[in-house]
Amino acid sequence: MTSQQVDMIPSGTGPVGWLERLRRYALLVRLNRPIGILLLMWPTLWALWIAGEGTPPWHIVLVFVTGVALMRSAGCAINDYADREFDGHVARTQARPIASGLVSPREALGVFIVLSLLAASLLFFLNWPTRYMSLVALLLTAVYPFMKRYTHLPQVVLGAAFGWAVPMAFMALNESVPPVAWLLFATTLIWALIYDTQYAMVDREDDLKIGVKSSAILFGRHDKLIIGLLQAAMIVLLLLTGMLLGRGAFYYLGLLGGAGLFAYQQWLIRAREPKAYFEAFLNNNQFGMVIFIGLLVDYLSFG
């Protein structure tokens, strides 16, 4: 069964029961495709472990992981609302709930609001400075889907939205945001530009037809080279992060594994095939996990 077939649920002609409606909302927020949650979760965990010096309080970890899932899901709902006029013209997205008529635009807005309120309720477990910072996260999440109308680099806004959990984690644990936190934030922003460009490459031809902007279109025939340069820059920033923190061998072994995965992604996209672009995008989950495992084992070994 293809991913497109998974997204398609017959709408029927009779009344929609609440279980069916919940299923449709689950598709709207991509619960059947958790890759977005994972890509947001990994840098959040990096930040929590660094800010907590290897032992972050588990209730704070739970709050952030839950917040990641809720805000990513809210982002999917507002993204589909923003793209409701485009998704039906793109092969990969024409079966999405709004485009296929399973969910109305008003329902999508309602889902976004409810999930955002649920995420906001988690702030009661965090300090006031972190609560104030969360307003920026909400703004970035709401604005990002509309950026593809105005700039070829909406991925930068996505990266800021995904990366904002990094300074929030430091503020939640230490009530300050040190330079290493902003370095990690910049690293996360670059990473989003890498994987979301790979993702956008899948739709590049359709996006050109309907006038949607993306980094994949901006980079053109230099796409592989620019992604490679961004990957190299990200590894360098992670090296600098490790040096600032005084991390040990296991952290750097994790970086070596991450560099190997980036090389594998370059091999995947060598022929510029849409399916390979998507495989490279998915492989970033392994990258984030390898970096976290290296960090985790390093703290367990050296403190």
Rank of each mutant, 00 (worst) to 15 (best):
S11Q: 14
G14Q: 12
G14Y: 12
G17H: 07
L19P: 03
E20I: 03
L22R: 12
R23E: 13
Y25W: 14
Y25G: 00
Y25K: 00
L28P: 01
V29Y: 01
G36T: 12
L38A: 15
L39W: 04
M41V: 13
M41D: 09
W46T: 15
A51C: 03
E53A: 03
P56S: 09
I60E: 03
L62F: 15
L62V: 15
L62T: 15
F64I: 09
V65W: 01
V65R: 01
T66H: 02
M71T: 14
S73P: 04
C76E: 06
N79M: 08
D83N: 06
H89W: 06
R92Q: 02
A95L: 01
P97M: 08
G101F: 06
G101L: 08
S104Y: 10
S104W: 11
P105E: 09
P105Q: 09
E107G: 05
V111S: 08
L115R: 04
L115Y: 02
L123G: 05
F124V: 13
F124Y: 12
W128L: 13
P129V: 06
P129R: 05
M133E: 14
M133V: 09
S134T: 00
L140T: 05
A142H: 04
V143A: 13
Y144F: 12
Y144E: 04
Y144G: 04
P145N: 08
R149D: 09
L153R: 13
V156N: 08
V156C: 10
F162W: 10
P167A: 07
P167I: 07
M168D: 08
A172N: 07
L173P: 11
V177W: 09
P179G: 15
P179A: 15
V180C: 08
T188K: 05
I190P: 03
I194N: 07
Y195C: 10
Y199G: 05
Y199K: 12
A200F: 07
M201S: 12
D203Q: 03
L208S: 11
K209M: 13
V212A: 05
V212Q: 01
K213V: 06
S215R: 06
I217G: 02
F219W: 14
L225I: 14
L225V: 15
I226F: 04
I227P: 02
I227M: 08
A233M: 13
I235C: 02
L237H: 00
L239V: 15
L245E: 14
G248Y: 11
A249W: 11
L255E: 05
L256T: 14
L256E: 08
A259H: 08
F262L: 14
Q266A: 11
W267C: 06
I269S: 00
A271C: 08
A271S: 12
E279I: 01
A280W: 01
F281K: 00
N283A: 04
N285H: 11
M289T: 13
M289E: 00
I293H: 01
G294L: 09
V297C: 01
Y299Q: 07
L300M: 11
F302P: 00
G303L: 04
